[in-house]
Amino acid sequence: MNYMSEAGKHHSYDNAQNQDYVLYEKNNNTSYIILADGVSSGKYSADGARIACDITKEFLKATGETIFDRNSYEIAGSLLSDINVALKCEAEKRKADIDEYASTIAFAVIDYNRNEIYYFSLGDSLIIVSGNESFTVLSMPSDSREGCCVTTTLNGYMHSNSGVISTDDINSVVICSDGAWHLMYNRNKIDPAVREVLIKQDYNSLFKLLTDKERVDDCSIISMDLVGSSFKS
């Protein structure tokens, strides 16, 4: 399990609080990694990202293995429904609008018995898998030119992206917030230096490459090694 999460320079409220949140859990049968990126204009989106991750963790525990076999819209609809109930409760305490808590949400579940990975993304996070000296984009960031689809978007589940893949030839799964992948990519192509460290799963070097760059947005990456770990956060 490896992660980095650094605050960006600019937020609507200029308090430099990191509005990304990452969560992970690993046990003998399954592991999961979760990442949420709070909306920059959301006053409480850091809390919203944390709540989204916590609810997702509970949802994954409750759903268990069945997540691999259920209808994707059902999963998405139910998860977002749970998240919105929690966000609404929190918003009412502060007498705030629920949109102040909005965030993206992305996760990957690895089931070691089934040898499968379930991935899910709502918003502009990037999910990739690497192995055999290559990497593959599993879930691309959504179209955010008119704004991003987030946890509080009406019928947001219809805009989510999810799927199941085999763990064959895969050594690690990585989720990147948009602040991270914007630094990793130049337009639509991966930076050659970033590519080199990604296929080697050398996350120390990846972390250094990204923190050396000037960034406005929060920058978070979380990865799960299926085979071993070579990174210290």
Partner: peptide
């Protein structure tokens, strides 16, 4: 070049129109 792209929520225009 500084990356200025931040996460902004999409407007619910289509859903609001359908809702109406």
């Amino acid at each position: 070049m500084v990356n200025e792209r931040l996460t902004v929520k999409m407007k619910d225009k289509r859903e609001n129109m359908l809702a109406s």
